[in-house]
Nucleic acid binder design. Structure first.
Lengths: 192, 192, 192, 192
DNA sequence: GATGAATGAGGTTTCATTCAT
DNA sequence: TATGAATGAAACCTCATTCAT
């Protein structure tokens, strides 16, 4: 029984994401993906131009999507604390909703990050900008915005890594209060 | 003209580490490594059993070595703040001394972590233990030791990631004061 | 231009058999086989899992097939002389029909015989059993059934070897009367 | 402790013979041989020019040696029965003394037989000649000397094969009386 | 939309052999 | 005599990709 086009396409996405994260991009073969999906290798080429294009598609779609959601959240919030709260929530929500995508976008080391252009919406850049603007407005102490952005991002990326390796239970959203508190402390902001 | 044994072995180590980190394990071929070293592919097999064994050798040696240095530092220090200071220093020193090894051990996603056995000295585990023991002694507020360990590790691993991508200048050791301060704040400890 | 599946599969079988017998298993490369078939090496792996599996497939299929035909012939005949006549005919017919398969199964020294399990139909074992049962029934003098089976088998295997090296002309079926007579004499049975 | 030259040379011979017979010439590597001997691969080249020369040395030395002993035995005996008895003894003695050499010379399929020249003493040829001369002298019935030689050789080669595969116990010399009797019967000679 | 045979390049590994030591 | 690092070719096999069906 042939599946609908969109069904197979979605299954390819899911399998490829899972395998890229589990085994790494270079160690995942098109055959691995086809086998996981339950089709032959040739069928994959009906949906994607090739392995590189598939990886880039998965990456850029997720990368831009996350960036847009982060941008919306930070824009809707007032004050650096609320902006960061919203963004941390967004990261945690993505992890809980689609851990493979989260890992692929933010933890795994594939070559895709090198293809990101400066004009693409960029989650990391958005966090940096929010921090930098808060410094300019004097909401937090002036300093190296990149360093502070890294410290903040570490608060969510490292717990996510721990969750991947089973050191933290899921959903990660349950850790939001602790992570928010740590974030505020780092920035010397009053607790919520 | 054959080189001394230890010379070639060391060069293989360096090249493999560099390439595994740059391109990923699965996307690095033995030919890539041989070309970087300046020998033929066959020569690699006189020094290592194969690609997997080479990766595991690099990983386990570095992993255990780092763990041992961390253990020494934390054991030599008194109080959780000093223990964490020492360990953070050790991480930063490794990054500045050998960024490829740092990335391979702590940032890159290869399959090696899955082969780590519970009885091997483990950097992550050491950080967790130091945190847990501080909680038991009441030096810091009780809580989930794994989560706190993740937050602390994030303070060094994420800046390192930023340094890899050029968002932070090197040496990373210069950031030690800022990172220490953030660490103390997270744990609600007085500044040094 | 892809051929029909069964066509290529059969051609691989024929070429592999021929080369394994001519050059020996270990001295025949997959490239040799592919070149003989007229496809690339990779194509072979769509039909067989690998070189070992290919050899085992050829061997076990032929080994069991011959055993089944021998079994049918001996079961259909009455008296040890007729049973042995039928089996000798079967051996000679196989040699004349497919000398490469005959050599691969019965003359060549590859590792395949070691993989034969006791529950597989086995040509040598069938000859031994027929001899042993004739001894039990008193049709031939009691003695070491394995030794007598060896002597009988030698009557057909060694002429086949001579034919392979050009010391005897083909078809070998023409030698059946002489071989039968020798067989009867060895067993002290009256001539036909 | 370095070994004497002749010692190592002999050990290479023994190991190579054993491995060529066990695994086949093409599936035996110089490394296999060196490992069995207990030296490095390079050392083998102090004693033999290469793998091919090693195999040919083992083969031709044994082949000619056996032929010379067979020739001596048949020349010393009077009458075809005694000549064949002597030769069969010689075959069985070789099997019991050095089964690996026996297998290498007479059972295994390596490429060496193709290199045998017509002017080399040749065990198979000697058996054929003795049979042919007996036919000329009317000691046995006239017929195809090659076929009769094959039948006689089969009486010793096939039991040897059975002994290799454990179907017959050793020493094979114990089977001499049975084999002689079978041989006389085939040739319609009176029992001894 | 999917299959499956095929390709040609390239993967990891092993080979026989050489040579400075 | 022997070692052991090295080579260059070739081993087996897998890769991403194409295409007739």
């Amino acid at each position: 029984m042939p599946r609908s086009r969109s069904d197979t396409r979605q299954r390819i996405r899911d399998c490829a994401l899972k395998l890229f994260v589990e085994k790494g991009f270079g160690s995942t073969s098109m055959r691995d993906i086809a086998h996981c999906v339950g089709v032959t290798e040739g069928a994959l080429y009906r949906h994607f131009l090739g392995k590189d294009e598939l990886a880039w598609h998965l990456f850029s779609e997720g990368f831009v999507g996350l960036a847009e959601r982060l941008e919306r959240r930070q824009a809707a919030a007032h004050g650096v604390a609320a902006k960061l709260d919203g963004m941390l929530d967004e990261f945690l929500a993505l992890f809980d909703a689609d851990p493979a995508l989260f890992s692929f976008l933010l933890l795994a080391q594939h070559g895709q990050l090198d293809k990101v252009t400066a004009d693409m919406p960029n989650p990391v850049e958005i966090v940096r900008r929010v921090v930098a603007e808060a410094m300019e407005r004097g909401e937090i102490a002036a300093g190296n915005a990149n360093l502070v952005a890294a410290l903040v991002l570490g608060l969510v990326l490292q717990p996510a890594t721990f969750a991947v390796y089973g050191r933290l239970t899921r959903p990660l959203g349950l850790r939001a209060p602790d992570i928010r508190r740590a974030c505020r402390r780092i920035l010397d902001l009053p607790p919520s």
